[in-house]
């Protein structure tokens, strides 16, 4: 059993304080959702957790089982068990999924250089589960992939790397209903399989529809860089009725449930 602990996390972008003291705790096997209006700091939270160079940490702590992550470079955070599925995964020309995962697993001492075929078999079988065509595995990472394919590719990497905690930033953007279901099933399976070491999830989302698939244990409301409310899944239902008005942002309404053709545009 592991615990991801975020306490008093403050961070700024371009000199503007975006996160003003975020506290969250996620245990193995739990699914936590962070919801909030545009500009609340959702995307900043995911980037800061992973150590993106464009953000400045002003204070606080992020740890897994007491091991501080904020002092580690990004790749060490990943090796410590943190995974970020970004909202819009970048294209990496000429580099395959297997190249990247082999490099990560070899660096972590979890794969020998000579065992690449083992990894490729694993990738092929996971790809089938997630509904990705095997042709994608031969292509360069995320190059010429549709929005939906990119999210499946993220899920594939999540499945093979088997981190302790995954931050899913707008996982549902670009996904149609069927794809959303397949991807959610695979994530959900990771949160139940493995018993004590099951995956813990922090799902950052603007839309409720992801939560219909992911079934969170807890929902947190992020407004102006702070968690202003936490509760069970019923909190998401309440937000859908009342919007964020009662949290001091009357102009913001929770985005409607339903297909979002421009998912990527709503950070």
């Amino acid at each position: 059993m592991s615990t991801l602990t975020i306490s008093g996390l403050r961070a700024s972008v371009a000199g503007r304080e975006i996160l003003r003291g975020v506290d969250l705790e996620v245990r193995s096997g739990e699914v936590h959702a962070v919801m909030g209006p545009n500009g609340a700091g959702k995307s900043t939270l995911s980037h800061v957790l992973m150590g993106h160079p464009g953000y400045t940490v002003l204070g606080g702590s992020v740890s897994i089982d007491g091991e501080e992550l904020l002092t580690m470079p990004t790749w060490r955070r990943a090796q410590a068990g943190l995974f970020l599925a970004p909202q819009d995964p970048v294209e990496v020309p000429g580099v395959s999924i297997a190249d990247v995962l082999a490099a990560a697993l070899v660096a972590a001492g979890r794969l020998a250089e000579s065992e690449r075929d083992v990894l490729e078999e694993r990738l092929a079988s996971e790809a089938e589960t997630i509904g990705l065509s095997p042709a994608i595995l031969a292509r360069a990472l995320n190059v010429d992939a549709s929005g939906g394919e990119k999210k499946r590719i993220e899920t594939l990497q999540l499945a093979v790397l088997a981190p302790r905690f995954a931050v899913l930033d707008e996982l549902d953007s670009g996904l149609d209903v069927d794809a959303l279901r397949e991807v959610s099933r695979r994530v959900e399976r990771a949160t139940t399989a493995g018993g004590e070491d099951a995956l813990g999830v922090l799902a950052i989302t603007h839309y409720r529809r992801l939560l219909d698939e992911l079934h969170p244990d807890a929902v947190h409301v992020l407004v102006k860089g702070e968690i202003v409310a936490s509760g069970g899944p019923e909190l998401a239902d309440e937000l859908e009725r009342t919007g964020y008005a009662s949290y001091g942002r009357p102009e913001e309404q929770l985005a409607p449930v339903g297909p979002d053709p421009f998912g990527g545009l709503f950070g």
Binding site: P73, T74, F83, V90, V100
Partner: peptide, 21 residues
């Protein structure tokens, strides 16, 4: 950053990106 977020050390990531180029 993307490769680092997967756990790839920086010198390996640079090499992969350059070879990929």
């Amino acid at each position: 950053f993307y490769l680092a977020s997967r756990g790839v050390p920086p010198e390996v990531a640079e090499r992969l990106v350059l070879l990929g180029f």
